[in-house]
Amino acid sequence: MDALTPLLQGSRHIWRGQHHPTEHPSIPSGHPALDQAIPGGGFPAHALSEIMGVYGVGGLSLCLPMVASVSQHSLVALINPPYTPYAPALVYAGVKLDNLLLILPSTDKDLQWSIEQSAKQGSASMVLCWNPQATPKTQRRAQLASEQGQCTTICFRPAAHRHQSSHANLRLCIDASNTELHLELIKAKALVGSKHIRLARP
């Protein structure tokens, strides 16, 4: 067992129950309550995370502090957003537009290719993609590409996909009321069960 322990600790591909993966870097979400709930203290860096819910209820706003922080020094790619990201609002949130790239693929095949290439190429430090046709296979490729390109990838998916299996390191479900965002953390390294978090709506 003594010989096994360092092997288990050395590999980040082995998740151990209730063991906090402190060696894995994370990016604070900008919402202390959420960071506290996620084992590791934030969105896993260089990995794929998923936010599932109806598009428009607050997924992008939830990520804006992270986008603002990352865009100060490196490139952030937004792929296939269901609307045009509005420059005045992004600047207001502190996002540096110079480091923001908008990618608009016209077909699903191109979308999957764009996500993988943007994450893998190493130019972008963060990729935010809206991927309604994601499958376990495409998510696996995105996860590997994120690791390879050291890119933090956040994928917005419809709420109906929450029961689909996924290779994402972190999975969140999002819903909103008038004043609050309801988040349900359904998958994370060292997470047991699920966690519910409430955040004030911006």
Partner: peptide, 15 residues
Amino acid sequence: IRNRLGTESVCTLCL
């Protein structure tokens, strides 16, 4: 991206 998906598929945002 441009050479694979076309020129219109990539843009930056300006104010």
